[in-house]
């Protein structure tokens, strides 16, 4: 078999980013929250309300980079019985109904236990476009896993932060096939803090003339933070703010609409 180049096989996220390279909006949710079977409804609501792509959170008991909102959603989801096997079967079903690009986001340990190879294969057959595993070491990805992800037509999406040095950002840029996830402040998810050097970070990124686009995430919850992200980068990813809406409304469609009201100041 010839080695697949990720650009040649159809990938919904690739297709999206070919059409649209600014003012992108992505929403993160935790699979299995609020109900075990919410996944399909949430994807439907995101697609129906024009969200560009969705991040499906694979719940983990000890999410080091997440604040209380996503921690609690994850615990609830695990308590509801969510696991990778269950998630993939839900995503297989969703794939037949929806076209919105899906990216999986989570931590390495559940993926390790599932088996990285099996994970990649199942993600591919569930129509997943990409994967975000914030605790995957760069060197390990490059040495041991890159080929596996590329063969399965999965973009691997790296995070960068204001503390990531320039040479490392260049390295990440060279391994990136879709976009770079730019965390706009040194903080866990859901923390609403203004980075002192936050503006500087995007200024620096701009001057680096990277090959790939970057999309801003963490702390985006209203029109101010959204507009800033859009001004600074190709798009915005919002997570905790949406989980908060799900906490308040339970109905995914109403929750997405409420989120969009906040984001668009309607």
């Amino acid at each position: 078999m010839k080695k697949n180049s990720i650009k040649k096989v159809y990938n919904p996220l690739t297709a999206l980013l070919e059409k649209k390279r600014s003012r992108l909006l992505s929403v993160f949710f935790t699979a299995g929250f609020p109900e075990l079977e919410s996944t399909g409804q949430i994807i439907e609501a995101l697609e129906g309300n024009g969200i560009d792509f969705a991040e499906v959170g694979m719940p983990y008991s000890d999410p080091l980079a997440d604040g209380p909102v996503i921690q609690q959603a994850s615990m609830k989801a695990i308590g509801n019985g969510m696991g990778l096997k269950k998630l993939f079967s839900q995503l297989e079903d969703a794939r037949e109904k929806f076209t919105i690009p899906l990216v999986l986001m989570g931590y390495l340990n559940p993926v390790f236990q599932y088996g990285v190879e099996k994970f990649c294969k199942d993600a591919r057959s569930a129509g997943i476009s990409g994967v975000i595993l914030p605790d995957m070491p760069l060197e390990q990805y490059e040495r041991n896993y890159r080929q596996l992800f590329e063969e399965n037509n999965l973009h691997f999406i790296f995070l960068i932060t204001p503390t990531t040095p320039a040479d490392r950002i260049k390295k990440i840029d060279s391994l990136t096939t879709a976009f770079i996830y730019a965390v706009s402040s040194s903080s866990i998810t859901g923390v609403r803090k203004e980075e002192k050097g936050g503006g500087n970070f995007f200024e620096r990124l701009k001057q680096m003339k990277l090959n790939n686009i970057y999309i801003a995430g963490f702390g985006i919850h209203n029109s101010g933070t959204l507009e800033k992200a859009w001004a600074n980068s190709a798009g915005a990813i919002t997570g905790s703010a949406f989980i908060n809406k799900l906490n308040g409304y339970n109905d995914p469609d109403i929750a997405v609409k409420a989120l969009l009201n906040d984001l668009y100041n309607r």
Partner: peptide, 20 residues
């Protein structure tokens, strides 16, 4: 050099911790 004792150890950390 990578912090491994055989295959154990290493630094499997989110990018947010990397610089620290």
């Amino acid at each position: 050099i990578g912090g491994f004792y055989g295959r154990f150890g290493g630094a499997y950390i989110p990018e947010l911790l990397w610089a620290n």
